[in-house]
């Protein structure tokens, strides 16, 4: 390899791709609205090392079929379907948990051990594995570990596990399309933000400071080129 080959002239001309203003000079350019790309893509800015790492994690399998069955049941106990949105299993939470414990290996033993603990607890109480117990019996065990402030000290291990599972289930659900629907999340949409809606200002009894009203950015007239006078006052 010589110097020339090593030289990277990587400017790609992306400025010409039509998403930018077309005018020139401070006379306001006409076509200014940027229409950004949204949605799925393939490489999303990953380095080759990151792509390889993600692929390896995805290929690896951690939970056994039995464990997956238990997970599917448990995540829906934590986040069930209701009138607003679907359940955690419908939102793919078990697969998310499968990935995350491989990505963050410190979860592996607590999660595996916690799922096992449910079985040993069910054995001690009912003489059968957790998933073989009745719905009532299963929920009884959960009730004993789901409320950290009330749980008996001997339930501490179960409480810890259930806290972790609650965290992962909630985050897995609310970062899925179903979770966004549930939250009625309105962000991540370009060219929409306009400040606080009037009725929300009224609801909380807030007013914007008078002195800033003339200078706040106005989303509707923001596409003219900025110009200043010599004192740095914006005049265009």
């Amino acid at each position: 390899m010589n110097r020339r080959e090593n030289l990277k002239l990587l400017f790609t001309g992306s400025l010409a791709s039509g998403i930018f203003m077309t005018g020139c000079g401070p006379e306001a350019p006409k076509e200014t609205l940027h229409a950004p790309t949204i949605g799925e893509g393939t490489k999303w800015g990953r380095t080759p090392e990151e792509l390889a790492e993600n692929a390896a994690l995805q290929e690896d399998v951690f939970f056994t079929e039995d464990e997956m069955k238990k997970l599917n049941y448990l995540v829906d106990v934590i986040i069930p379907k209701d009138e607003t949105s679907g359940s955690a299993s419908e939102a793919g939470v078990p697969d998310f948990i499968e990935f995350i414990v491989k990505d963050m290996p410190y979860y592996k033993t607590p999660m595996r051990g916690g799922l096992m603990w449910l079985d040993t607890e069910a054995q001690d109480r009912y003489g059968k594995a957790y998933m073989e117990a009745s719905e009532d019996e299963r929920i009884k065990i959960i009730d004993d570990i789901a409320y950290p402030d009330q749980a008996k000290p001997e339930m501490a291990r179960g409480v810890k596990f259930f806290n972790t599972l609650r965290n992962l289930t909630s985050t897995g659900f609310f970062t899925s399309p179903e979770g966004f629907k549930d939250l009625d999340y309105k962000g991540n949409t370009p060219n929409v933000w306009k400040g606080i809606p009037d009725e929300v200002m009224a609801e909380h009894g807030f007013k914007l400071e008078e002195k800033y009203l003339p200078i706040y950015m106005d989303p509707d007239t923001r596409h003219t080129l900025a110009q200043w006078d010599e004192e740095g006052n914006l005049i265009g």
């Binding site: 930018f20 005018g23 200014t32 950004p36 991540n188 949409t189 596409h223 003219t224 080129l225």
Partner: peptide, 13 residues
């Protein structure tokens, strides 16, 4: 607000 023709204005994301 744009300051030149090479860069767009914020679309608030």
């Amino acid at each position: 607000k744009p300051i030149n023709n090479d860069r767009g204005a914020c679309f608030f994301c």
